[in-house]
């Protein structure tokens, strides 16, 4: 099979929100996002907390809330991922690993949730084996979600995903609330999935952890993808091309821990053109126009300071 396992092209997601009274505003939480995931590859989409990047996962799964809408193209195995295909594939070939215990039914035992309604000795056996492979004993099956620790919850959620032998795994913020070792272990489990041939799309705000495990990263700034590059590009500052990505690099503890002044703009008050322009030291007048994607040796960047256009 040729082409990417998952290819997202020009995806924009907006949220309808009631402003004052009955006045509706559309909040563009994600704009013109492109990302590809190949088999055996782990791609991280990095954005700040609360920026609506979970909606990317929901758009691919086809479970966007009623007040959100998506535009753009999503291809799975080279073919458009239509609503029918989403329905047929989700939970089977394409699985979601959500972020917290609130995604488990509070009144259903863990074993039953991992099995997802399937009965019979072979499923029971499989459930037990998978939980066991993540260090969860058979006694876990009889527990209710409120009895799980944060780390156990993640492993249960991962077990539920692996039950299906998925080809594409979308992990939505799988690490918050975990201490570093536990978070690394969780990401290690996703790495194992890629070794078995699955593609993993990791949605996270944790740059450091993402760089340690992912093959490639897509950096979001205020909902816009500013740069896509491979994880090793973050070894040195000059292999990064977007001024924001470089600022992220410099903000990492081992690279100086320097923070840039200002903060990401709220989606309602986005500047025209490049969203980073107000904070960028290299900003030019042209930056307030639409900035197209430009190819780099490692991926792409959305900055006028690069020459070649995609």
């Amino acid at each position: 099979m040729n082409g990417h396992l998952l290819e997202v092209k020009g995806l924009s997601i907006s949220f309808i929100q009631y402003d004052r009274g009955l006045h509706q505003v559309s909040l563009p939480v994600i704009r013109d996002l492109g990302v590809t995931v190949d088999r055996g590859e782990m791609v991280a989409v990095i954005g700040s907390s609360g920026s609506g990047k979970s909606l990317l996962a929901h758009a691919v799964m086809g479970i966007l809330p009623y007040n959100a809408s998506a535009e753009g193209e999503i291809l799975y195995k080279g073919e458009p991922l239509t609503e029918e295909r989403q329905k047929a594939l989700r939970g089977k070939e394409i699985v979601l690993v959500p972020q917290s215990v609130s995604y488990l039914d509070p009144l259903m035992k863990v074993g039953e949730q991992v099995k997802n309604g399937r009965k019979g000795p072979s499923w029971r056996e499989k459930c037990r084996r998978i939980l066991g492979s993540y260090g969860l004993g058979p006694e876990t099956e009889a527990l209710y979600p409120f009895q799980l620790s944060g780390g156990m919850t993640r492993r249960v959620l991962i077990s539920a995903a692996v039950m299906e032998e998925p080809e594409l795994v979308i992990a939505d913020e799988p690490t918050p609330g975990l201490h570093l070792d536990a978070a690394k272990r969780v990401l290690g489990h996703f790495r194992e999935m890629t070794e078995k041939g699955a593609g993993v799309l990791l949605i996270t705000h944790d740059l450091e952890l993402a760089l340690q495990t992912a093959d490639r990263v897509v950096v979001l700034y205020a909902g816009t993808a500013v740069e896509e590059t491979d994880s090793r590009a973050f070894d040195r500052e000059d292999t990064l091309y977007h001024p924001y990505t470089r600022a992220l690099y410099r903000a990492m503890p081992e690279h100086g821990f320097r923070s840039e002044p200002g903060s990401q703009p709220y989606v309602k008050e986005l500047p025209a053109g490049c969203p980073y322009r107000p904070r960028c030291t290299m900003a030019l007048p042209e930056c307030s126009c639409e900035v197209p994607l430009r190819k780099t040796d490692r991926g792409f960047v959305r900055c006028i300071h690069r020459e070649a256009e995609v």
Binding site: H58, M61, I63, K87, R90, G91, K92, V95, L96, P98, Y103, L104, D105, N116, G117, A160
Partner: peptide, 8 residues
């Protein structure tokens, strides 16, 4: 939401 994502 998760149940729907799992194909229920």
């Amino acid at each position: 939401l998760f149940a729907r994502a799992r194909g229920e």
